[in-house]
Design a protein around this nucleic acid. Structure first.
Lengths: 337, 337
DNA sequence: CACCTATATGAAACCGATTGCATCCGTATT
DNA sequence: AATACGGATGCAATCGGTTTCATATAGGTG
């Protein structure tokens, strides 16, 4: 079998508890004993069993990551890897590992969370995005389990979250088109099941209102978060209206929107201007290069991990949420009219 | 405290061992008892503690994922998320979770593996790419720990691996340029520390040889796997030679190569043709759209996870390695001469 | 009717750590 | 000299399961 704490104890002529204390570098153990134990560990090639340690101490040094939708789908939108990149930088710095749940749909997602929480496999959880109908958030809150949500939840009472100012960001995008002389501005978002979609719709409406433009239902469409989703949404809008500008809340969708516009015989940006969201790497290389709202995706990951870990370490936390700034990246997908 | 197996046992008037057997759905327990126990579990809201279970059974139902280089860097090349997408599909299907190590450099990477293996946190490991100097592979082999490598290792004895035929793929790319009349063909790869770079260099040499072209050292350059790396490599080559075609073993690097060519006053593809590798999503949208070797990244993930799990389940395995096919995607970054 | 054999369940050891409490010893205090 | 005290370490319970082996009961056999 493997080398255990008992073998080390025997070799160093001490009790297992002493070895345990040496591992934790407890000040209660004398320098000499520590050295004897270290030597024994070295000689035997001892390495602590993390599982046993977790069982006894109830700490795993692991963070759980819950992807929305299927894990497969999540990895195909560059937003998620980028968020994970941020999370992993902090996790590494703070010596945490990351446990990825692999789920296929909403039920399995719930199950994955239960597996992590009730199975005591993680110390805390990061939800990579929040739905309006999310049962997870109330459930985690009731369980009093530490978690952080990326994306402001509908009901934010007692939950820690990290997000952009989505209403503001959407106003920014819409105002940009308005300032460039557009008056018929369409708005395409992902499913209204996601809070982020709702907020951005609100921002769009506010911008119109503040500029004395009327909101027209036929200029608004929701679809799946994908290139095809964007394509379908734009097709539907073009069949019933004639926008000169479009705000699309996801760059991947925006590519579909451009494709639809071209298929319908419009030129981008000459006939239709487009503003996207997220500033994914592809956006700079698209044809035309996409004007988009950079939401600091990497930073969202960083901040969410920091917030969660601060909570786990019972550090003083200034606020239960963090707003990450956005900025507009001007490229070539918009023209003045 | 939490509900444990003992609470359930008490409530159902059985011994803890019986409850354990009910959880495992052992045929040794009578239908009636099972039902009584299930009811008790239901009523108490019992959920098994995965950590305790792992400790006793020595099974974690978790696969460890080891990224090369820093975790942060890995997430910024679309290759890795795509591989992970494949892995996560299989992991989910087979009911495994994924543990991500977060490391910053080679030493930490080794440490992360030790933490996983010696800490008994995972049942098996997938190495997302192999270095020539990799100490990990011999170490894991000596430990007799189940693992699979994406990318054929230099010394493949006793190692399970999944890869493309990199020599063939590189010949394919080089031959494509040769067939289009190119004779001065440059070759840019990532560090020769990676086996994949070596193999592709070999494929390039072979293609030259088979077509009676001479290999010229000044047409070959290695650099870091990044857009900047590609830029620097191409700059160095253009200062000493005049290629009409370039094989670049990574699309992200290829973007840098294009940028360098343009900065030096060349047009792509009119003056210099370029073939990339990986077919990342961006490639189709680049300017010009990139002709590239599609290496079925997703499939690499799928196969590696399947191979590992088959090994864990002691299934019959036909071969200790799997070759995933490649194909050339023709776009607009090459012209005939 | 004594003996054997399944079948169903329980008792207890074990997995490899952590931790509260007890103990031992040497030195300072009164 | 008796008491107190603090430092260093050990004992044993505990975390929440799994698994081996033993036992009890019922039914079958000669």
């Amino acid at each position: 079998m493997n080398v255990t704490i008992k073998d080390v104890a025997k070799r160093a002529n001490v009790a297992p508890s002493t070895v345990s204390r040496v591992i934790a570098d407890s000040p209660r153990i004398s320098k000499e004993t520590k050295e004897r134990v270290w030597k024994a560990m070295e000689e035997l090639g001892y390495y602590p069993n993390a599982i046993a340690r977790s069982l006894a101490s109830k700490v795993t040094n692991t963070l759980g990551l819950i992807m929305p939708r299927s894990t497969e789908e999540a990895f195909s939108n560059p937003f998620f890897p980028e968020v994970m990149r941020g999370i992993s930088v902090v996790a590494h710095r703070e010596k945490y590992d990351l446990l990825l749940s692999t789920s296929g749909n909403k039920e399995e997602e719930k199950e994955a969370v239960i597996r992590m929480v009730k199975g005591k496999r993680v110390d805390g959880i990061i939800l990579l995005s929040s739905r309006t109908t999310d049962e997870l958030i109330p459930w985690l809150r009731d369980e009093k389990f530490p978690f952080v949500v990326i994306g402001k939840p509908l009901d934010a009472r007692g939950v820690y979250w990290v997000d952009n100012d989505n209403i503001g960001a959407s106003k920014l995008a819409t105002n940009y088109l308005i300032k460039h002389g557009h008056r018929e501005i369409a708005f395409i978002s992902g499913s209204l099941e996601y809070v982020v979609s709702l907020d951005r719709l609100d921002g769009y409406k506010l911008a119109l209102e503040e500029n004395g433009l009327t909101f027209k239902r036929e200029l608004v469409e929701q679809e799946e978060f994908s290139e095809d989703g964007g394509y379908r949404a734009m097709m539907k809008i073009l069949e019933r209206a004639k926008p000169t500008g479009v705000v699309v809340t996801d760059d991947v969708m925006a590519f579909g929107v451009i494709r639809a516009a071209i298929d319908k015989g419009f030129r981008v940006p000459e006939d239709i201007s487009i503003v996207g969201f997220n500033n994914i790497p592809l956006s700079a290389f698209a044809n035309p290069p996409l004007t988009t709202i950079d939401i600091s995706t990497f930073e969202l990951g960083i901040k969410s991990a920091e917030l969660l870990i601060a909570r786990l370490k019972q550090k003083e936390i200034e606020s239960d949420h963090i707003i990450v700034p956005v900025k507009l990246i001007e490229r070539k997908s918009c023209v003045s009219r």
